[in-house]
C-alpha cells in the first residue's frame, strides 16, 4: 500500500462566484506517475494548481505529504513541490544553462553553489538537451523551451512534480524521451502528477488515472478499466473506440 503524496479533502474552488469544482476529495499515490484527464475547461489545470499550493481552495484542505504548502518555508516547499506551467513567455535571452540553474533558486541562498551547478548539468544530460546549454532560451522552438522548463524542474529535485501539459509542443521523439524520463524518476523517489490531453500518451506512460468531467471527479464503474471505450466516450463527449495494446489500449475516434 503506497502512501498518498497529495491529499484533497472536500475541496471546492471558484473563480469569483463561478465554481470550477465543488466538494472534491482525492488521494494521489506516492512514487507513481499519475495523470489527470478531461475535456477543456473541466478544471484540470486549476486542480493541479490547487494541489501544488499555487491556488488556495475556497474551502476544504489540500495537503502535500500531509502538510499544508502554505506552512512550509521556501526551501522546504522547493524540496516538496515543483510545478511546470503550461505557458512561459520569455523576455530576456538567458542561456539555457542559466534558466535551468534558476531551478535551484528555492533551495539555495543568494548565489548558486558548486553543487547547484553540478545538479543542473546532470539534469541537462537527463533530458538530453545538453547540446542546447549555451543557446539563448528565446531562440529555441516552443518544444525546446518546454523541455528546458521541464529540465529546470528536474534540477530543482522536488519530491512531487506537477506538470501542466508537459508535451503539448513536443515532437514524437521528445514526447517519449521526456515522459519515459519522468516515468523512470517516478520509479525512484519522485511522484509525478501530470495533466495530459492525449489519453494514448497517458495510458502508455501513466500508472494512475484521474478523470474530471463538469467539475466532478469520475471513476470507471467496478469491473470497468480506465481505457474502457464507453467510459472514455462519456468523459470526452465524443464516440471513441479502443484497440487493446500491451495490457492497456489505444484510443481512436469512432
Amino acid at each position: 500500500m503506497t502512501q498518498s503524496a497529495v491529499s484533497l479533502q472536500n475541496c471546492s474552488f471558484s473563480y469569483g462566484n463561478q465554481p470550477v469544482w465543488t466538494d472534491l476529495s482525492v488521494d494521489i499515490p506516492e512514487n507513481q506517475f499519475s495523470v489527470i484527464l478531461g475535456r477543456n475547461g473541466s478544471g484540470k489545470s486549476t486542480l493541479l494548481r490547487v494541489m501544488a499550493g499555487l491556488l488556495k481552495p475556497s474551502s476544504g484542505t489540500a495537503l502535500v505529504h500531509g502538510k499544508n504548502p502554505d506552512d512550509l518555508s521556501g526551501s522546504e516547499r522547493a524540496g516538496h513541490i515543483g510545478f511546470l506551467p503550461q505557458f512561459h513567455r520569455a523576455v530576456f535571452p538567458f542561456s539555457v544553462r542559466d534558466v535551468i540553474l534558476t531551478g535551484r533558486a528555492g533551495r539555495s541562498g543568494f548565489l548558486p553553489t558548486e553543487k547547484d551547478h553540478e545538479i543542473s548539468e546532470a539534469a541537462l544530460h537527463q533530458t538530453g538537451i545538453f547540446h542546447l546549454a549555451d543557446k539563448p532560451y528565446t531562440q529555441l522552438s516552443g518544444g525546446e523551451q518546454q523541455l528546458v522548463m521541464a529540465t529546470r524542474i528536474l534540477a530543482q529535485q522536488p519530491a512531487v512534480i506537477f506538470l501542466d501539459e508537459p508535451t503539448s509542443h513536443l515532437d514524437l521523439y521528445y514526447q517519449s524521451a521526456l515522459l519515459s524520463t519522468l516515468k523512470s524518476l517516478s520509479k525512484d523517489q519522485f511522484t509525478m502528477i501530470a495533466v495530459l490531453h492525449d489519453p494514448n500518451l497517458a495510458f502508455r506512460f501513466g500508472d494512475e488515472f484521474f478523470f474530471l468531467r463538469k467539475g466532478k471527479l469520475v471513476k470507471p464503474e467496478s469491473g470497468q478499466e480506465s481505457w474502457d471505450a464507453d467510459f472514455l466516450s462519456g468523459i470526452f463527449d465524443t464516440p471513441l473506440e479502443t484497440i487493446p495494446f500491451e495490457g492497456k489500449a489505444f484510443v481512436v475516434h469512432r
Partner: peptide
C-alpha cells in the same frame, strides 16, 4: 548586488519563481 542571481529567477516570471519555491 547580493540579489544579482535572484534577479535571473524573478526575470523568468512570477509563476516560474513560485514553481521552484521562491516567494
Amino acid at each position: 548586488f547580493l540579489f544579482r542571481w535572484r534577479l535571473n529567477v524573478l526575470a523568468l516570471g512570477n509563476e516560474e519563481a513560485k514553481a521552484v519555491g521562491v516567494n
